[in-house]
């Protein structure tokens, strides 16, 4: 699905990602954890194609294709979905119009005809039920006036609509109460199949009680410093990141 090799990236000349290597296979869920500022969102941004992050070195293969040369919208149509850490408000653009355009762009890419208005609305309804989002949200402008939790649920709803092959969820769990957290987790679990993959960026073990990862990585100072099974998340929850930091520093010295 996704093969990242020695990826180095910088923002405004400041090096942020310092050599990341990672492979995600179809059907897998990977969790990426790590302290604030370690580069998790930056990695997500590189994968989604944000232009302000400069890739200096390394390769990213997605379904066998070179991802780095592609425009953001083409990546999306190829099945990459980014759940934003801070979804932006877009006043004046209605959710319906926005999603309809996106879904039809995806369909066009697959050689399908655009959905009729009624089919589309039906699909909206189904997906809304599936991810349990308040149907009123869909009548508003994109994220406008949404609470933090509503914005995150809206990201999951969009994911359900677009059915990606690789979904990257950047701290979709932070700031959520327990019910909203369940909605997000259920959304992921319902969408999970043997041929799609998830990268879940999170701070908390909490979410991983609901979404069980196959692999857990710790990102620290632009590098993946530890990779293990889901028990690593528990360990982090218990001990915090300090021991990892110490370990890293010792390694550097040694």
């Amino acid at each position: 699905m996704l093969i990242i090799k020695n990826l180095k990236a910088s923002i405004g000349g400041k090096s942020i990602l310092k050599g990341i290597t990672l492979e995600v296979k179809p059907g897998e869920i990977h969790a990426i954890m790590g302290p604030n500022g370690s580069g998790k969102s930056t990695l997500a941004a590189v994968l989604a194609g944000r232009e302000f992050v400069e890739v200096n070195e390394g390769t990213v293969l997605y379904q066998g294709k070179n991802l780095l040369g592609m425009a953001a919208e083409d990546r999306a149509k190829e099945g990459i979905f980014l759940g934003f850490q801070y979804p932006i408000e877009i006043p004046g653009v209605s959710m319906v119009n926005f999603m309809k355009t996106a879904v039809n762009e995806h369909r066009k890419h697959k050689g399908l005809d655009p959905l009729s208005a009624s089919d589309f609305l039906k699909m909206m309804r189904e997906k809304k039920e599936m991810v349990e989002i308040d149907s009123k949200l869909a009548n508003r402008s994109v994220n406008e006036g949404f609470s933090g939790g509503e914005k995150k649920k809206n990201e999951i709803f969009q994911m359900a609509m677009l059915e990606p092959s690789l979904a990257i969820l950047d701290e979709t769990d932070s700031g959520l109460d327990i019910d909203a957290l369940r909605v997000v987790a259920n959304g992921v679990n319902k969408l999970k199949r043997s041929d799609n993959s998830f990268i879940v960026i999170t701070h908390y073990q909490r979410l991983l009680d609901y979404i069980v990862p196959d692999v857990v990585h710790v990102l620290y100072d632009g590098r993946i410093v530890k990779t293990a099974g889901k028990e690593l998340a528990l360990e982090l929850e218990e001990k915090g990141y300090d021991w990892i930091k110490r370990e890293v520093e010792n390694n550097v010295i040694a």
Partner: peptide, 8 residues
Amino acid sequence: YLQSRGIN
């Protein structure tokens, strides 16, 4: 945000 949803 729009482009990341596949809109050109």
